[in-house]
């Protein structure tokens, strides 16, 4: 769907993107991650044709990115706004027409979306009368109204209360099922794990990690487990089996985070402990995207 090849973007005194390449597959939800100022917005601005790359190329459905693609992309920027004095309905209609919809078609779709997101009576309200969360709903509708093949959302959930965030999340999933491809730019990692199929991590203008979320998490497993038991046991005795990372005692129970040595496995740990204590729990700690994110960013 979208292939980005060796993009370089140089601003006056810093390089915003340094040889970044990535691929977004059709029908997938792609997470574009990175700390603030990493170059995410610069990359998105190239995809949305707000700016152009100094070198490298972007292919959209196999074609070099061009003006015709603007109507196939929907973009919800992080810094987003609306005309304060304009009526909501007029405003969304205007934005939809700029994307090439006819007045009649746009009106029909706005009514549909307004109905669906419980904003049917907002048509003649003005932006200044809406709360921030309400404004974001309007912006979301404006982004998806022209049925774009590729929808780019920059921090889509910031500013939403949990109820509305959930509504929007479900809309995203539904649009995705209908075939829309998404790019998420965010540093809220929970939403990444929940929604994204693939991710790319950008740090200091370079891509430092990419791939399917499942694979990455799998790859970053490091034999760490939560162990909980009742009874007395000197953990020191099992030094050759695992390393203790963290210990806490609650109501006679002991909770420890252990890292099992590479030559060993959980079965051996269990058989060593069962004679001495009663075991409540042994869980593998699969690193969250958050952990991986922090780890990778600190590393580089």
């Amino acid at each position: 769907m979208l292939i980005i090849k060796n993009i370089i973007k140089q601003y006056a005194n810093h390089r915003a993107l340094d040889d970044v390449s990535l691929q977004v597959e059709k029908g997938k939800i792609f997470g574009l991650l990175g700390p603030n100022g990493a170059g995410k917005t610069s990359l998105i601005r190239i995809i949305t044709q707000i700016t152009g790359p100094d070198s490298g190329e972007v292919l959209f459905n196999g074609e070099r990115l061009n003006v015709d693609h603007i109507s196939k992309i929907g973009y919800l920027p992080e810094e987003r706004g609306l005309y304060k004095k304009m009526e909501i309905g007029e405003q969304v209609l205007y934005l939809a027409k700029l994307k090439g919809l006819s007045t009649a078609e746009a009106t029909k779709r706005i009514r549909y979306w307004f109905e669906k997101l419980e904003m049917a009576d907002w048509w003649s309200k003005k932006v200044e009368d809406l709360s921030k969360g309400m404004q974001q709903k309007v912006q979301f509708v404006a982004t998806v109204l022209h049925k774009p093949e590729l929808i780019i959302l920059d921090e889509p959930f910031s500013g939403f209360d949990p109820v509305n965030a959930d509504i929007i999340k479900n809309e995203i999933l539904e649009l995705n099922r209908e075939g829309a491809t998404f790019i998420f730019s965010t540093h809220r990692m929970e939403s990444v794990e929940e929604l994204c199929d693939n991710i790319a991590l950008i740090h200091r203008s370079k891509k430092i990690l990419d791939g399917p979320v499942k694979d990455i998490r799998e790859q970053y497993r490091n034999n760490t487990y939560w162990l909980e038991y009742e009874g007395d046991y000197q953990l020191e005795n099992s030094k050759e089996l695992f390393e203790v990372l963290h210990t806490e005692h609650i109501d006679g129970k002991t909770k420890v985070k252990i890292k099992i040595r590479e030559t060993q496995n959980p079965n051996q740990v269990l058989s060593a402990l069962i004679p001495h204590v009663s075991i409540n729990r042994l869980d593998e700690v699969i690193p969250t995207m958050n952990d991986i994110f922090i780890q990778k960013v600190k590393q580089s």
Binding site: I70, G81, L82, Y83, L95, A142
Partner: peptide, 13 residues
């Protein structure tokens, strides 16, 4: 347009 940030939405169209 700049302070209300609508500009970002506009120039993607």
């Amino acid at each position: 347009e700049k302070t209300s940030r609508i500009i970002e939405i506009m120039i993607s169209s």
